[in-house]
């Protein structure tokens, strides 16, 4: 079952690589919720989700022809998503340096949603206290990426991923409990 779904994904990616718009649309629809969740976990800002998710998928469409191994599409897509979010957070940091008076407008904490549970609020709060790199690590694990895949995404070793993940989980738990 797993094998057939991965074969179907590879076929879909190959069709999208050839420029078939239906295949590109199907890829976007299949992954838009997961990418949106990843962006939300990374930025903690609901107003960034649509814009950043759009940037991720536009980059996906443009760069798809260069993807050598369609079987690794998911890892590749989440690497794009991670890099896009980290670029956005860096730009935001730079803007804070050059436009210090904008800080109070950018740092308004997002109020909890009307239907958000206490746990979700606690998770959002805890994630906001972590470094973006650690947030990315935890979000990639939640996305089902293996340690080896994460090591490839971050261009580091599996041992380094495990160590960083352990520390990130500890920090998350500390902030989650507080």
């Amino acid at each position: 079952m797993e094998n057939s779904s991965s074969t179907a994904l590879v076929d879909l990616v190959r069709r999208a690589q050839k420029g078939e718009e239906d295949a590109q649309r199907e890829l976007i629809v299949s992954y838009q919720h997961r990418v949106a969740g990843f962006v939300y976990a990374m930025t903690g800002r609901g107003d960034y989700v649509e814009d950043l998710a759009q940037q991720v998928f536009i980059k996906m469409i443009r760069a798809l022809v260069h993807l050598q191994a369609p079987a690794q599409f998911e890892s590749w897509l989440f690497r794009l998503a991670r890099n896009t979010c980290i670029d956005q957070l860096r730009r935001q940091k730079l803007r804070r340096i050059f436009l210090p008076f904008g800080v109070e407008h950018e740092n308004i904490p997002e109020p909890p949603g009307a239907v958000d549970s206490e746990e979700l609020d606690a998770l959002r709060h805890a994630l906001a206290q972590l470094r973006p790199q650690d947030r990315a690590l935890l979000a990639l694990v939640q996305e089902g990426r293996s340690h080896a895949e994460i090591a490839e995404i971050l261009s580091t070793s599996v041992a380094a991923v495990k160590a960083r993940l352990h520390r990130a989980r500890e920090h998350l738990r500390e902030h989650y409990q507080s």
Binding site: R25, Q32, F38, Y40, A53, F57, G113, R124
Partner: peptide, 21 residues
Amino acid sequence: TWRELEAAGARRLRAGFAERV
């Protein structure tokens, strides 16, 4: 809770997202 977070992020996408992309 992580799934709730993903769902909360997904709710931020407006209808017709794929077409806009």
